[in-house]
Design a protein around this nucleic acid. Structure first.
Length: 211
DNA sequence: CGAATTTGACCGGCGC
DNA sequence: GCGCCGGTCAAATTCG
């Protein structure tokens, strides 16, 4: 549960209120063609700063420093491994910056591999807590030590029946205020958890922001 | 008492 | 083949 990320990017008028992460996840889940667009357009940075509401929320909660960065955006499972995930250090400024980077150009040695297509996205989030509330329910199934990193990496699976979306969460030892969350796969179901009670979330936030 | 987490074992891929 | 590494399994344990 992360009171930091949850309320900051309240979605405008859609039926369900989404967190920042939800917003991004919905974007990715519901528009399966989005990645093609991104590849074609050779996106490097796309910003949600033009979301006035989000900016407004950010001003309301200046201490909630949640800058999320999609540091990898991939369509093929075998295209990417952890070494390919480049973290854009420069984007860790105070701004709410969201970048989408396509790693398509970084093909590994072998030619075109058209195996199972599993999208893999990584978010870089400045947060004091590891577990980011993205609206889905997750069960932890593993934890491993990461080399060159004093923090372990945790492995989670979506608990929804038949949904095999996975995610990894890892804190950088370079900058331990940064949490990297890597999602793999698309959810085949709507968000489980109700995030409608915004006031409750606000209350939660104040626990973290009023010291 | 069922669900979730912990943690060492296990497995497959890869480089040597 | 061997060892390393990242990822997963599953029994034991803890939690709600």
């Amino acid at each position: 549960m992360n009171p930091f990320t949850t309320p900051i990017f309240e979605s405008s008028s859609s039926s369900s209120k989404n967190s920042h992460t939800n917003l991004l996840m919905n974007m990715m889940n519901n528009q399966s063609n989005l990645h093609h667009q991104i590849f074609q357009d050779e996106y490097h940075t796309t910003s949600i700063n033009n979301n006035n509401k989000a900016a407004g929320m950010m001003e309301m909660f200046p201490r909630s420093t949640t800058s999320s960065t999609i540091i990898n955006y991939n369509t093929t499972r075998d295209d990417v491994d952890d070494d390919d995930i480049d973290i854009d250090e420069a984007s860790n400024s105070k701004a709410i910056t969201t970048t989408i980077e396509a790693a398509a150009g970084k093909k590994k040695g072998a030619g075109e591999n058209s195996k199972c297509r599993k999208p893999k996205y990584a978010f870089q989030t400045r947060s004091q807590v590891d577990i980011l509330d993205d609206g889905y329910r997750w069960r932890k199934y593993g934890q491993k030590a990461v080399k060159n990193n004093k923090f372990p990496r945790s492995y989670y699976r979506c608990t929804h029946q038949g949904c095999n979306v996975k995610k990894q969460i890892q804190r950088l030892s370079k900058d331990e205020s940064i949490v990297v969350t890597t999602y793999e796969g698309n959810h085949s179901h709507p968000i489980d958890k109700s995030t409608d009670n915004f006031e409750h979330i606000l209350t939660q936030m104040q626990i973290y922001t009023s010291y």
